[in-house]
């Protein structure tokens, strides 16, 4: 690791002063802002050891007191940005009202890592693309303009949706897939005041600027993640498909949530569907969700939805298998959420 200095400010204002003036460099996850917040450290320190991130100064925000989980006025929950992933997943309000979110968090990393990792850090974790980690290879996300090692290289874990000719990386988080399906909101503070970013607008597609992961500016701090009251507790699930049974990133994952109505809940009233492991951001398709509404909760409906969602999926030399895998995972997740028997 390169040399850097370390600071532990005693309040949010002091933390913001420490990163003031670096908004121009893009998001905290992008390019090389000289000052970085460190929360759990599990992604940033890893990337610093690999020499992928090279800050001069770390600002430790883990003791700012933003680690509570509280009720919101509207009947939802506010998850502190510095609350640990394990504490969030095991919080009884989260696990009973938002079981899909608990399941997604617990499907990620290991128990030790979840004890360290924070909610804000989870949102801003960077891709696990092998070339991004390997400073001996070109990578537009790490060093803009150098090219993409994965296009034409080994791309088994890469995107099938929303990729660009600059970058085909995927966002690796499990938690974020559930947050996308729940339509969470990210609460942020910075020199321009507070703002709320809808989850669908928090992460971005790579386009021509794959070095920018999110719409958060480099001088902003995430303070909390708000969950709306609707948690889909009765009919939802998170399904993660990976190379080993535990402690591996998703090849494909699905957060599926339904509201059912009619006799025995035979009809879908509304649906939420988000995919992980397939794109540069948690992938949500409102057209597919709208298409599901009003349909019978049946395998046929789910298969149609899966095919529609994947209509523009594009496989590359090693990851084309993800298209079929995603199709089957969507069907299974929706069937599980609906309580419909599936093969």
């Amino acid at each position: 690791m390169r040399a850097f200095s370390y600071d532990r400010p005693d309040g949010v204002d002091a933390a913001l002063r420490a990163v003031a003036g670096q908004a121009e460099s893009g998001s905290p996850g992008s390019a090389q802002p000289p000052v970085k917040f460190v929360a759990g450290g599990t992604n940033l320190l890893d990337l610093m050891k690999a020499d992928v991130m090279r800050p001069d100064r770390l600002v430790d925000i883990s003791r700012l007191g933003l680690d509570g989980i509280e009720e919101t006025d509207g009947g939802g929950l506010r998850l502190g940005a510095l609350a640990r992933n394990a504490d969030t997943a095991y919080d009884e309000r989260v696990s009973t009202r938002y079981p899909m979110l608990s399941k997604a968090i617990l499907a990620g990393a290991s128990a030790q890592l979840r004890n360290m990792a924070t909610n804000g850090g989870n949102l801003l974790q960077r891709t696990r693309c092998y070339y991004f980690y390997d400073t001996g290879t070109p990578c537009n996300k790490r060093e803009p303009g150098t090219g993409c090692g994965a296009i034409g290289g080994v791309n088994r874990i890469h995107a099938i949706l929303g990729a660009s000719d600059q970058c085909i990386a995927v966002h690796p988080s499990d938690m974020c897939v559930a947050l996308a399906a729940l339509e969470a909101e990210v609460r942020v503070t910075g020199p321009r005041g507070e703002r709320v970013i809808p989850f669908a607008e928090f992460h971005r597609l790579p386009g021509d600027t794959p070095q920018i992961d999110s719409t958060l500016a480099a001088d902003e701090l995430i303070t909390a993640i708000d969950l709306p009251p609707q948690g889909f507790a009765a009919h939802s699930t998170y399904l993660k498909v990976r190379d080993r049974a535990s402690y591996a990133f998703a090849l494909v994952s699905v957060a599926a949530a339904l509201e059912l109505e009619g006799a025995n809940g035979a009809t879908i009233r509304s649906a939420r569907l988000a995919l992980g492991g397939v794109a540069h951001k948690p992938w949500r398709d409102r057209e597919v969700e709208a298409e599901l509404a009003g349909k019978p909760a049946s395998l046929e409906t789910f298969r149609d939805a899966a095919r529609l969602l994947l209509r523009e999926a594009k496989g590359r030399s090693h990851n084309a298998f993800k298209i079929g895998l995603a199709e089957r995972a969507i069907v299974r997740a929706l069937a599980e959420a609906a309580g419909v028997e599936h093969p």
């Binding site: 370390y6 532990r8 460190v38 759990g40 450290g41 599990t42 320190l45 890893d46 770390l58 430790d60 883990s62 128990a111 030790q112 890592l113 004890n115 360290m116």
Partner: peptide
């Protein structure tokens, strides 16, 4: 590298001593 910090297990390789 697992150790217990305030009784909770963590990976000591991914945290700084100062933290």
């Amino acid at each position: 590298c697992t150790v217990l910090v305030d009784g909770r297990r963590i990976n000591s390789c991914l945290t700084l001593a100062v933290m």
